[in-house]
């Protein structure tokens, strides 16, 4: 049960960072913390709950690898967006980005 509390605490800390950080890179790092907390919760629950789906050999690891791949793609695209936004608007602070345009 400890893993549920710790993983959810990690997710909550990351969520607090997303809500309060002003710098885009720091927001992105906080999103990574949220994602890490969610994956630890998934893996921890899948390894400790006795269900047919979680007892499939290699099942948890396969899903975990797919999650890591998705997270890597997400981080790369998000960082490209951050760099493009910082270059276009000459700032990386979210509270100074007040205009949206095409």
């Amino acid at each position: 049960m400890n893993i549920v509390v710790v993983a959810t605490a990690l997710f909550s800390v990351g969520l607090y960072g997303v809500l309060t950080r002003r710098d885009l890179i720091a927001v992105l790092a906080s999103v990574e913390v949220m994602l890490g907390g969610a994956s630890v919760l998934l893996v921890g629950l899948a390894r400790t709950i006795d269900m047919p789906a979680t007892q499939l050999p290699g099942g948890v690891e396969s899903v975990g690898v797919l999650i890591v791949v998705l997270a890597a793609a997400e981080a790369a695209v998000a960082l490209a967006v951050v760099i493009a936004a910082a270059r276009a608007l000459s700032t990386s602070r979210v509270d100074e980005m007040t205009e949206v345009g095409g």
């Binding site: 890179i25 992105l28 790092a29 390894r47 975990g64 690898v65 890591v68 791949v69 951050v82 760099i83």
Partner: peptide, 29 residues
Amino acid sequence: YALPFLATVQVFVYVGGVLVLILFGIMLV
């Protein structure tokens, strides 16, 4: 949790890839 392959992937992709990517982002921004 006895997932050594996932731990290896985590170190390679996250610590070796995503973290370096974020450091590059810090350098550029």
